[in-house]
Design a protein around this nucleic acid. Sequence first.
DNA 1: ATAAATAAAGATTTAAAACTCTTTTTATTG
DNA 2: CAATAAAAAGAGTTTTAAATCTTTATTTAT
Lengths: 167, 167
Amino acid sequence: MSAVSSRTDSDHRMEYCGRAYLCRMFSKAFGYALRAAVYVAIHGKDGKKVSLQEASDALGVPHHFLGKIMQDLVKHGIFDSIKGPNGGFYANSGTPQMFLIDILKITDGNLVFDQCALGIRRCNAAHPCPLHHDFANCRDGMIQALTVKTVGILAEDVESGMSFLAR
Amino acid sequence: MSAVSSRTDSDHRMEYCGRAYLCRMFSKAFGYALRAAVYVAIHGKDGKKVSLQEASDALGVPHHFLGKIMQDLVKHGIFDSIKGPNGGFYANSGTPQMFLIDILKITDGNLVFDQCALGIRRCNAAHPCPLHHDFANCRDGMIQALTVKTVGILAEDVESGMSFLAR
DNA sequence: ATAAATAAAGATTTAAAACTCTTTTTATTG
DNA sequence: CAATAAAAAGAGTTTTAAATCTTTATTTAT
Ligand code: FES
Ligand code: FES
């Protein structure tokens, strides 16, 4: 049995992009958190509140797991909440300005990601693993996006129909 | 407590690249497998063989875990092995031509990665999540690298001192 | 033929992420 | 003030990846 194959770049797009071999990259919690923050930014303003039930239904995310995550986001000021009847989660004045990477720090920040995608200890441009530069490009691109984009920017994209939070 | 901060792109490089918040992206098994394949390509040729002990010592990878992984690589023809005294793992004629993505398929292929990095089900350019295009860029870059690079190319880089497998 | 060295196979354990369940606290409303 | 609705908190379970341990099969050398 052999795994050899000759394959062009356009092939891979057919073969991999749809079914997606790649890639975890972030925790599920981060994806849930980000979507929740955008959802609250859209639906939890002008005095409106979003209940946990509404959010988990709308986003299709496990109820209690999302509860934990949203608690954490409140604790870190991404948005606010209030208990009791007619309580819920709602945006504060800073919510739209939150950087996505701030949310990543909240959900994944304590995970110690390996520096090197191949698991080599001392990883830097001077002592690179054979894929260092490819990984660095990829990683920098994502960090760049997460660093400049805010919850508000994503909310606008969603509100204008350019992108979607669910389904 | 607030997570707000204003941060430039150059800041993030200082803050994140060294300690690396990002990112798992592949299983550890893939990193081990790739390094093992390159190691065997370098040291398991011209009649020489690499014992599991030698490989796990040289790469600093858990002995038995690596054993499992190398078994699997042999089964898929990435390199060969022989049991008994003076046995071990060694490159076959196809080893240097193996594409990295073939190894990824062996180690991670059965994992169902979420298509969408944010966990949204239907993920494509027509129905994108708010980060779809950023992810797509990153992902395509990595797939591109894994699709065109071979074990032999990495082995040459390592042999010429351009990159490193361990430490 | 026996012993030794080695990979292969299988079973088990550990650790971490993902998810669920239960209880408590806080606020609102009648 | 009592009942209720909601988030917060905490404990517990499940699943998966990662790592370890044990046994078996194969080859070589003596
Ligand atoms: S040395 Fe491996 S990614 Fe940098
Ligand atoms: S829809 Fe989320 S990455 Fe494509």
